[in-house]
Amino acid sequence: MLAMLHARACRAHARAGDLRASDREANAALDAYSNAIPLTEDLPSLYWVNLGEIFQLLGSSALNLGHPARALHHFQQAATASMAELRESYDGDSFPRGAAIYEARAAEAHLELGAIERAVAVAHLAVEHMGGVNSARGSTALADLRTKLRVHQGVPEVRSFLEFTA
Rank of each mutant, 00 (worst) to 15 (best):
M1T: 11
M1W: 08
L5V: 13
A9P: 02
A14H: 03
R15M: 13
G17D: 08
D18G: 03
L19E: 10
A21T: 08
A21E: 07
S22I: 02
R24S: 09
E25L: 07
A32D: 00
N35C: 12
I37H: 15
W48V: 05
N50F: 05
F55I: 00
Q56P: 03
L57F: 10
G59E: 01
S60E: 11
S61Y: 04
N64H: 13
L65E: 00
P68N: 09
A69Y: 07
R70G: 03
R70P: 03
L72W: 00
H73L: 10
H73T: 09
H73Q: 14
Q76I: 06
Q76S: 13
Q77D: 01
A79V: 06
A79P: 12
A79D: 15
A81T: 09
A81M: 10
S82M: 15
M83N: 14
L86I: 14
G92K: 02
D93V: 12
F95C: 04
R97K: 13
R97H: 08
G98N: 04
G98A: 05
G98I: 00
G98V: 01
A99F: 09
Y102I: 00
E103R: 12
A104H: 06
H110P: 07
H110G: 10
L113A: 03
L113G: 03
E117C: 13
A119W: 01
A119L: 01
V122D: 06
A123V: 05
L125T: 15
A126W: 01
E128C: 11
M130I: 01
S135L: 00
R137Y: 12
L142R: 00
A143V: 10
D144I: 04
D144G: 14
R146L: 05
H152L: 10
H152K: 11
Q153R: 15
R159F: 14
S160L: 14
F161K: 05
F161M: 09
T165H: 02
